[in-house]
Structure formats: C-alpha cells, structure tokens
C-alpha cells in the first residue's frame, strides 16, 4: 500500500472550529494526535492523555493511521482524558 498523504477533518474538544490536517498512512495515531494538538494550540492548550475517536470508535495510539482504518476526509475527534 502506498504511503499516501491523508487529509482528515480534526476536531479538538474545547475548540471553536474544525481543522484540516495532513498525515501519512504510515504515521501513528499518536503522531496524528500531536498534529491535531499543534494545529489547534493557538486556541486550546494540549492536554496529556488525550484520546482520539473516529465516530464512537477509540483509536489506539500505537496503531498506524492506515491500520486504524481511517480514510481521506474522515472526521476524527480529540477528547481529553475524562471527557
């Protein structure tokens, strides 16, 4: 599988809008979380142990974006520990 760049719509709890982030299919979910936190850091302080969801499904930090089943222009939600 090609290591394609994948655009995703990211929403961070506490933020005021959705952002577009680009990650590689081979990137880890942890990298995606970091990317989202950096993209929204101007409005929302990064919080430790944030959890990433695609719909109701929580994504494993250690998994790759591809293995997590994400596809282009999907919505992902970053939620701090404890909601």
């Amino acid at each position: 599988m090609k290591d394609v760049l994948m655009p995703l719509y990211g929403f961070v709890r506490g933020d005021t809008l959705g952002v577009l982030v680009l990650v590689r299919a081979s990137d880890s979910v942890g990298t995606l979380i970091d990317t989202l936190e950096q993209a929204t850091a101007v409005r929302v302080a990064p919080r430790p142990q944030a959890r990433l969801f695609a719909g109701e499904r929580e994504l494993d930090r250690a998994s790759t974006v591809a293995a997590a089943g994400l596809s282009a222009l999907e919505r992902v939600d970053l939620v701090p520990e404890g909601g």
Binding site: F11, R13, G14, T16, G18, L20
Partner: peptide, 22 residues
Amino acid sequence: HGVTPIGFCSLCQFPLCAGTPR
C-alpha cells in the same frame, strides 16, 4: 494565529463552527 488550513461546510461555505466547543 493558526497555520493549518481549516474545513469549510459543503453547503454554506463557512468554517466548521456550528455546535459548541464541547
């Protein structure tokens, strides 16, 4: 200032700002 592109609604074309911060 943000440095990442943002999403826009496929109907109203405004940024994805509906709902609440939560």
